[in-house]
């Protein structure tokens, strides 16, 4: 499960007020290199909840990867930024697309309901009494 997927998931369990963002508890994760595509990141960024993404990077032991506040677009997409090691766009790309959570759980912030992540697949099925 990429952190991008975590960013789009919410808990819909009965009793949840917003159910978002889910607290990520990662017990096993890895990184897989993906070629950076600036246009793709540009199109994706407006859909990302930044605070949820930062919290997720901390959950996988990368507390320094992203700043608390989203950097300005001029900085992220500056000319040549994609080729600079450690640039904002490289960090964002790494966080969203290269980190994979293999085992762990997603916890509803309102009800503490745990959704298990097994072999990279979060199971968001609710029990009958939770719908």
């Amino acid at each position: 499960m990429r952190l991008l997927t975590h960013n789009m998931l919410a808990s819909n369990v009965r009793g949840a007020t917003t159910g978002y963002p889910l607290t990520l508890e990662a017990t096993n994760w890895c990184t897989k290199e993906v070629e950076l595509n600036s246009d793709f990141i540009r199109g994706l960024l407006p859909k990302i909840d930044w605070r949820a993404l930062v919290a997720a990077t901390r959950a996988v032991g990368l507390p320094e990867l992203l700043p608390e506040e989203q950097p300005p677009e001029e900085e992220i997409f500056a000319d040549g930024a994609a080729d600079v090691e450690g640039s904002a766009i490289r960090r964002i790309h790494h966080a969203l697309l290269e980190v994979h959570v293999q085992e762990g759980s997603l916890v509803c912030p309102d009800t503490s309901r745990c959704f298990p992540i097994n072999k990279g697949i979060p199971n968001m099925m609710l029990h009958e009494d939770e719908v």
Partner: peptide, 18 residues
């Protein structure tokens, strides 16, 4: 592959999306 196409295990009667 994700993020072009992503698949989530869940019930469409109670979807895990905001």
């Amino acid at each position: 592959d994700s993020p072009r196409c992503e698949v989530v295990c869940g019930n469409f009667l109670s979807m895990p999306f905001p």
